[in-house]
């Protein structure tokens, strides 16, 4: 009887074994390797390397370029997240409110979500192109500006334009998730509030927000990480330029690893990045846990 029980346990375990193997080999092991290489002089092409202790970390932490990238990264994350949430949240409220065309707007508004990063980059570069781009030329034609603006190569415009493209891409995800969270709010509470004479704003603050704040909190955690880590979009649209103005930490890490060919030092950068994200997430999860207990 006992051996049969053990056998049953083993078959149950076989179901999750492949998934655990993937997690261990493709996520845990590489992270450990990264930490290891961050203490070595590993080169992209040369085979031999040696142990250098904290040399990579010291080199990174004393590089003003790293700190500039870090600040740019924080600016990039906060502004992108803020506008994604504002635009996406309002879109969700609007779709929730209207009666006709709900699924039409939903379907059209999620288009950016499906875009591969390279197509995001190429299409926006073409739309914003400083010679034959649609937007710069239409702005001139409408008399809003005198000369064709150089959206992606001008020092003042490149960063905000990049953030706008990121909002274009990320707002749909916020909208869809908020929309499905809104469905979980019981309608009769709104009706009761209306009978009691509550204003729409009061209903929103006292019924809607408390109901969806946990989903919102989690969304913010996930989006923060994603935006902080985003590599493709920046790399493909500006490559960190002009003059390093849009260089974030992942781009910096790529340039160190594949530009300077110093994989060891690049590992040190990415390990620092991970440590920072872990700290941010711990803070977030502490707040979320508190909310869950209150709910």
């Amino acid at each position: 009887m006992k051996s049969r029980h053990i056998k049953a346990q083993i078959t149950s375990f076989c179901f999750i074994l492949p998934a655990l193997t993937v997690l261990a080999l493709l996520l845990l092991y590489p992270v450990v390797t990264s930490v290891f290489y961050s203490f070595t002089s590993k080169h992209l092409i040369k085979a031999d390397y040696e142990f250098v202790f904290f040399k990579n970390y010291i080199a990174v932490l004393t590089d003003p370029d790293f700190w500039t990238s870090f600040l740019t990264n924080i600016k990039w994350t906060i502004t992108s997240l803020f506008f994604q949430i504002v635009v996406g949240f309002l879109a969700a409220l609007a779709v929730d409110r209207i009666r006709k065309g709900k699924s039409f707007f939903r379907t059209i508004l999620i288009i950016p979500w499906a875009f591969p990063s390279i197509v995001i980059a190429l299409s926006w570069k073409w739309i914003l192109n400083g010679v034959s781009g649609f937007l710069p030329n239409i702005l001139v034609k409408m008399g809003i500006v005198d000369t064709v603006p150089q959206f992606l190569s001008s020092a003042n415009l490149a960063f905000p334009v990049l953030v706008m493209i990121n909002v274009w891409f990320g707002a749909p995800l916020i909208m869809v998730n908020v929309l499905s969270a809104l469905q979980t709010v019981p309608r009769d509470q709104y009706e009761a509030a209306q009978v009691d004479g509550a204003s729409p704003l009061q209903s929103f603050l006292h019924i809607t927000l408390p109901h969806i704040r946990i989903v919102m909190g989690l969304l913010i955690v996930l989006r923060t990480i994603w935006i902080f880590n985003s590599f493709d979009m920046i790399y493909l649209i500006t490559g960190g330029g002009p003059a390093g103005l849009t260089q974030t930490v992942p781009i910096y890490a790529y340039n160190v690893g594949w530009g300077l060919k110093m994989l060891g030092r690049s590992s040190a950068v990415t390990v620092l990045l991970l440590i920072f994200l872990l700290m941010v997430c711990m803070l977030y999860f502490r707040i979320l846990n508190k909310w869950e207990k209150e709910a």
């Binding site: 990264s34 991970l274 997430c281």
Partner: peptide, 16 residues
């Protein structure tokens, strides 16, 4: 695992 920067994994992947 969602937190792991893709660029962090890229280095060990290319080596492995």
């Amino acid at each position: 695992t969602y937190m792991f920067p893709p660029i962090l994994l890229a280095v060990p992947y290319s080596i492995i």
